[in-house]
Simulated scan of single mutants.
Amino acid sequence: MKVLHVITGLASGGAERQLELILRHLPGRHRCEVATLTNPGTVAAALTAAGVPVHDLAMRGNRDLGVLPRLTGLIRQGRYDLVHTHLYRAGLYGRLAARLAGVRPVLATEHSLHATVIEGRPVTPGVKALYLAAERLGSTTVAVSRQVAATLDDWGVPAQRVELLPNGIETARYCLPTASRAALRQGVRAELGLPQSAWVIGAVGRLVPGKQFGLLVPVLAELTRLAAQHPALREPWLLVVGAGPERAALLRQAGELGVLHRLLLTGERSDVPELLTAMDVLAAPSAEETFGLTVLEGLAAGLPVRHSACPALDELPPEAAPGAVRLPGTAAAYTASLCELWSSRSAVLPQPPAVAHYDIARIADRLALLYDRLGGAPGRGPGERAPVAAGSR
């Protein structure tokens, strides 16, 4: 089966990295290509290096309607059996282009859909109406968590058009022998200019307001003040992996609080598993997530994790992730919890059951079966149906 994935952009965000993982683990019976509407970034380069054809449609903005005939032509000429879209803009244009090109099986994964926010932007009546109109042009919508499935249900998307298929994580990539991990940690810290003896609070994600990384700067300031009073404590640093519009605000805030010299912003990186080895704890203060992939990555890397939202863990029993602690999204809560970790002995934690539950190989196999069913190929049956709350449609 020949599949075209259509995505809004290919910078190193959660949805983009998830697409890269899926393409590396899908069974060989599915031949995949990718079309990016705009911004072919580090993920595009990684896909190309892996031999996945990437088509850059050079869309100039949300209202660049010229992308529609280009995408329609690509789908028609490529003779794809199925189109799979990712993210809001790609879902709008990809579903319509597939319909115009005569491709009926169209799958759309909802990576970042909340009741009132989609991909960090408010859901206005116009945005919602346009979304629902486009959804009807497809055949199936994939929800990455029960939270997303519930939102789709509330919006009126019929349950029979929704499949629950979570994101996945490449667990094997994080499993390193102790000596290898120690050497990698030392090398990464040297490359980044982090002191080998530092105690590093890590954060991963796009630098946007919803991630609330600004909450961690006063935490760093308070830990720095405490370190000056207690020389036995390790020097605190804040390492943030990601790019986005909040970069300048974070730097300004750190300067105002006198901890600019302790804040390191790496920008967009494709080597997140390696960078996690340089951290002592992962902090994820975002108040709203549709899945919480970064939390799972931190757990897979053996880090203690402090987070404020992770639907992926909410769907599992507490013992599935003993290294993760949920906190209120306040600087005071993070300061108190991180101080406890800071004063204790650091140790690499074993991968918890939650990590194995979301192994990308299992998720990719389930997606392949869904492709088979939608495309008419023989398979073992449908993916897991999204649950519908009592009394709903």
Rank of each mutant, 00 (worst) to 15 (best):
Asp359Trp: 03
Val54Lys: 15
Asp372Leu: 12
Leu152Phe: 12
Val200Cys: 02
Val219Ser: 00
Ala183Val: 01
Glu274Val: 01
Gly9Ala: 15
Ile363Cys: 02
Asp314Leu: 13
Leu100His: 13
Leu68Met: 14
Arg60Pro: 02
Arg29Leu: 02
Ile201Cys: 13
Leu299His: 02
Ala149Phe: 06
Leu257Thr: 06
Lys2Ala: 10
Thr224Gln: 15
Gly381Tyr: 07
Arg136Asn: 09
Ala115Ile: 04
Val259Lys: 04
Ile118Gln: 15
Ala243Ser: 14
Leu216Asn: 01
Trp342Ser: 10
Val6Ile: 12
Ile118Gly: 05
Leu176Lys: 02
Ala249Asn: 09
Ala50Cys: 04
Ala101Met: 05
Ile118Pro: 00
Gln229Leu: 08
Arg104Lys: 14
Ala97Met: 14
Phe291Glu: 00
Leu192Asp: 02
Val54Pro: 09
Arg31Ala: 08
Ser270Trp: 07
Pro177Tyr: 05
Pro382Thr: 12
Ile7Asp: 06
Asp365Met: 07
Ser344Thr: 14
Cys339Gln: 14
Leu238Pro: 06
Gly323Asp: 11
Leu257His: 05
Ala248Phe: 04
Gly383Glu: 06
Leu220Asn: 03
Leu26Glu: 12
Pro105Arg: 12
Ala320Cys: 14
Ala35Asn: 09
Ala203Arg: 11
Glu256Met: 08
Ala44Met: 11
Ala129Leu: 11
Pro318Ile: 02
Leu100Asn: 14
Leu327Cys: 01
Ile363Asp: 01
Asp56Trp: 12
Gln351Val: 01
Gln186Ser: 12
Val259Leu: 10
Gly376Leu: 09
Glu384Tyr: 00
Leu276Tyr: 03
Leu164Val: 05
Arg60Ala: 13
Tyr334Cys: 03
Asp64Gln: 14
Leu282Ser: 06
Leu263Met: 07
Gly126Pro: 00
Pro285Ser: 10
Ala377Tyr: 11
Arg366Glu: 10
Pro27Asp: 05
Gln253Ile: 08
Ala172Glu: 02
Leu374Asn: 05
His25Trp: 04
Ala324Ile: 03
Leu71Ser: 12
Asn39Ala: 15
Gly120Ile: 02
Val388Gln: 13
Leu338Cys: 11
Arg136Cys: 08
Pro195Thr: 13
Leu47Glu: 06
Gly61Asn: 10
Arg247Tyr: 07
Gly51Val: 09
Ile169Phe: 00
Ala35Pro: 09
Glu268Trp: 07
Leu226Val: 13
Tyr88Ser: 02
Ala336Met: 07
Pro273Gln: 02
Gly193Tyr: 08
Gly379Gln: 08
Gln351Met: 01
Val162Asn: 09
Val3Lys: 07
Ala90Arg: 09
Ala336Glu: 13
Thr294Met: 05
Thr38Cys: 09
Pro218Asp: 13
Val204Asp: 01
Arg269Met: 10
Ala278Thr: 01
Ala228Phe: 06
